[in-house]
Simulated scan of single mutants.
Amino acid sequence: MIVKQQRRARAIAMTPDEIDAFLAEQRTCRVATNGTNGPHATPLWYAWHDGALWLTSLSRSQRWTDLMADPRIAAVVDAGHDYNELRGVELRGRVEVVGEAPRTGEPCPELDGPEQLMADRYHGGVIHHDGRHAWLRLRPEKITSWDFRKLPADRQR
């Protein structure tokens, strides 16, 4: 899949390696879905693996219902406190379900990497299959990034 190039703010955009490092170190993303009653935004833990954002979602949730009707999604991961520290990545595209839904642990080689990453980051290395969550993969169609630390000194507040 070809990722659309960022057109604006390229001077402060992260490089692909910077994006990979940033997404590997942050812990929470905010996901927006399209629902029948308008947008729905929620924070989620995630794994960044092989150029895809991997999410787990309760398979009986508003987010899941929204995504099964319309798989388009936007996810934002950001960090920083002061203006000249702000940085982040927005990923847009369509999600696909990977593995059984809900996930009970049936063999699925595509999930080996993401499940272990998620377990290492959030569960002390132990993979959990609770029979309530399922995996979603977002292969971004568009990535927009910003790193205000790259601003010239005269443009920093």
Score class of each variant (00 low, 15 high):
residue 91 L to D: 09
residue 87 R to G: 04
residue 136 L to V: 00
residue 122 Y to C: 02
residue 90 E to R: 11
residue 38 G to D: 06
residue 39 P to R: 03
residue 105 G to L: 05
residue 15 T to S: 12
residue 115 E to D: 10
residue 62 Q to H: 10
residue 116 Q to T: 09
residue 53 L to V: 15
residue 30 R to F: 15
residue 82 D to Q: 14
residue 4 K to H: 09
residue 46 Y to L: 02
residue 11 A to Y: 09
residue 20 D to V: 05
residue 14 M to V: 13
residue 153 A to W: 12
residue 5 Q to L: 11
residue 34 N to A: 14
residue 10 R to C: 07
residue 132 R to Y: 13
residue 117 L to A: 09
residue 112 D to M: 04
residue 28 T to A: 07
residue 41 A to Q: 15
residue 34 N to F: 15
residue 39 P to Y: 05
residue 117 L to F: 11
residue 117 L to W: 13
residue 81 H to T: 12
residue 8 R to C: 03
residue 52 A to H: 08
residue 93 G to E: 01
residue 125 G to S: 04
residue 10 R to F: 00
residue 5 Q to E: 15
residue 65 T to Q: 09
residue 155 R to H: 10
residue 13 A to Q: 07
residue 38 G to P: 08
residue 118 M to G: 01
residue 150 K to N: 06
residue 75 A to P: 07
residue 101 A to M: 12
residue 144 T to S: 05
residue 133 H to V: 05
residue 150 K to I: 08
residue 57 S to R: 01
residue 88 G to D: 04
residue 102 P to V: 07
residue 51 G to D: 10
residue 78 D to Q: 13
residue 102 P to T: 05
residue 143 I to D: 01
residue 54 W to I: 07
residue 78 D to M: 08
residue 41 A to K: 00
residue 71 P to W: 12
residue 29 C to H: 03
residue 27 R to P: 01
residue 115 E to G: 01
residue 156 Q to N: 04
residue 129 H to S: 06
residue 144 T to G: 02
residue 59 S to Y: 06
residue 148 F to D: 02
residue 155 R to M: 09
residue 34 N to S: 13
residue 152 P to W: 01
residue 106 E to A: 14
residue 84 N to D: 14
residue 40 H to D: 05
residue 76 V to K: 03
residue 139 R to D: 07
residue 59 S to E: 08
residue 12 I to M: 11
residue 112 D to N: 10
residue 86 L to E: 12
residue 49 H to T: 07
residue 68 M to Q: 15
residue 89 V to T: 09
residue 88 G to W: 08
residue 14 M to W: 15
residue 31 V to N: 00
residue 21 A to F: 05
residue 33 T to A: 05
residue 136 L to I: 00
residue 144 T to W: 14
residue 11 A to Q: 10
residue 18 E to D: 13
residue 100 E to P: 04
residue 64 W to Y: 15
residue 29 C to Y: 01
residue 9 A to V: 13
residue 10 R to P: 01
residue 154 D to T: 14
residue 66 D to C: 08
residue 48 W to A: 00
residue 37 N to R: 10
residue 59 S to F: 06
